[in-house]
Amino acid sequence: MDKLKAIIEALVFVSDTPVTVAVLEGILEDVSKKEISSALDDLMREYEERGGGIFLKEVAGGYQFRTGETLTSWVLKLKGQKPMDLSPAAMETLAVIAYRQPVMKSEIERVRGVDVSGIMRGLLEKNLVRIMGRKNVPGRPIIYGTTRKFLETFGLKALSDLPTLREFKELEG
């Protein structure tokens, strides 16, 4: 394995959040962005081919090591608890925010047909959702969007990586 790949692997390994190419570029002064990206691609492929317990994944605009998705029950035996268990109501609310952001609370409630105050509080607390600002209409309502943590949690590279919304359209005529 060449030196560059080894360094990058070590840096991603010790980082507690996904490491971005920009961060790596700052550390590896003389190495171009292109070389870094290609080393990361190599590493991802190597872990994929190895098919072991951990994989290198591209999430939330960076790179992170993650356990394989077939090993969940083993890891949970060690760790004990599922901190990211989201209720169906929370998932629905999150889906509306993810696909409709920036979105007002009243819009979420209109779509879901229920009050979402409690659920919004929970999502804000879990740092999956954030306040993006206020809409410039009377009453200046708060508008919400998803966070970087949301991308990280759902293993998405960016919002554009969300599965396409399969809309159920009204039949015309």
Binding site: R66, E69, T72, L86, A98, T153, G155
Partner: peptide, 17 residues
Amino acid sequence: AALGLDRMDILGRDVFS
């Protein structure tokens, strides 16, 4: 869409860093 999100590998639920 929510079911779609739920099927994804969620960090801290299905996969771990």
